[in-house]
Every structure is written in C-alpha cells, then in structure tokens.
Amino acid sequence: MITIGVDVGAKNAKLLVLRDGEIVGKKSRESGFDQETVTNELLAATLAEFGIDRDEVTGICSTGAGRKAVQYAGDKITEVTAAARACFELYPDTKTVIDVGAEEGRAIRSGERGKVEDFAINEKCAAGSGAFTEAMARALEVSVDELGRISLKSDASVPMNAQCAVFAESEVISLLHARTPKQDIAKAIHDAIASRIVSMTRRVGLNKPVVLVGGMARNVGFIHSLNTAMQDEVRIPDAPEMIAAYGAALVAAERAVVAATETGASGPG
C-alpha cells in the first residue's frame, strides 16, 4: 500500500511517500503564495521521480498550516496529531513531543499508540519559535546556522528575558553595546528559547523520553540549551522537519485500512 503525507508549512511544503510502512521518497519546496499550485506540482514531481502511478496511491493526508490548500488530500489533520503519530512510530516509548518550527512551538503529551493526550502551544508575545532565532541572528549579523554553532563555544550564563520577544531583542542590543562576546549572546538567546519551551512543556508535563522535532531540531545551539534545561538528552529523528509529513502518511495508511475493513473490501497488495 502506498500513502502520501503532505505538510504545508508557512515556509516549505514537504511531501513524503510511504510504501507498506517504509519511506520510499520525500521532497520539499517553498510553499509560496499559491499553495494549491505548489502542492500540485510537488505531487506530480514526486510521483514522476519515484515512478509511482497516481492510481497506486491508496490515501493522501495533508497537515500543516496550509493543509486545506491540498485539494487531492482525502484526509486533513493538524500538525499536533501528525507529529505525535510519527514520533510513536520512530520511538514507541515517546512520552513527550516538542515541536519547534518557524512560527510556533508545541509540546504534546503522547499516550498509547501516539494518541495526543494533551498539548500546549506557545502563546503570542513569546520568544519560543524559530522566527525568534532568525530575528536575533539578524541583530547579531550572523546566519541562523552560525548562531547555533558559535553558541556551543560559550559556557557563560547571561540571564535574558524569555517572556517577550521585543524585550529580549532590546536586551540583545544592550548586550552588544556592553561588548558581550557574540558567542555568549548566542548562548543566551538559545538558553532563553529553551527556557521558554521547557516552561511551556511543563504545562503538559515534562515526561521522558522526549522527542524534539521541527526546524529548530537542526539548531545545535538550541539542542544544547534544551538538553541542559531539561537535564536530559532529547531524541532527534534524522529528518526532524519531515516528521509532520511522515505522521500524515502514517495516518493516511491507517485510515485506508479502517475504511477497507468497514467496506469489506480487501486492501491493495
């Protein structure tokens, strides 16, 4: 059985193909303004590249902020459900999923078979997302990757306000004026976001093991700060930004099986 998960985020659209539970292909591109066209093209390109016929695809499930733009998706689920489902598949003993993307951070308490038992999403006025690191990197005139790398060089602990992004930004500027080394500021920024994320995660209970997904799971500085704040090593999947698409593909497969059982038809393959 082939199913597809499509995750349409604010920045990128990601597509993942699953054949009998195995990932056989993935592809992503910028989601742009016309998400409908982009996701159509993405599907066509993926099918062509991996030599899959459209009729072979049993189910397609979309997720992400732009999931409704995916006209060909039979199922639509939110990123919360998708992330929890995928993390269960990768690490069946997952208790908590932390998902930090460009726009928001989420914490999910994962129950049996990846069922979402409770979730929290960072509120407005919070410095707990990838966009915050981008803004801070700009203030420091470094790339986001560099921000992560240089912060690992610091073992200083500069307190910074993590409650409000605006306040935090002015603190960064204050630190720059005070000639604080960039690496220390970078660490302070990651510590602040990590503190914010841990703070939010405590709302659903900080139960271990914890899996970190989303774009920020690529940021080595953030990972270090998060591990320190939690006094634990978070697990990070190989392609943390593909997790939602993977979860969506898994859900599509499950629903196809359920539908097949209900109608009495036998599943393909």
């Binding site: 902020a65 919360v80 459900t81 979402v116 999403i121 407005k124």
Partner: peptide, 17 residues
C-alpha cells in the same frame, strides 16, 4: 490580540484529540 486562524487550528487539534 486574537488570531482567528491559529485558534481554529488549535480547535481542530483539540477535536482530533
């Protein structure tokens, strides 16, 4: 101080749970 889009998404997640 209210974001309708994000709130409906959150409701959808809740409905799924």
């Amino acid at each position: 101080e209210f974001d309708m889009g994000r709130t409906t998404t959150r409701i959808e997640s809740f409905m799924e749970t």
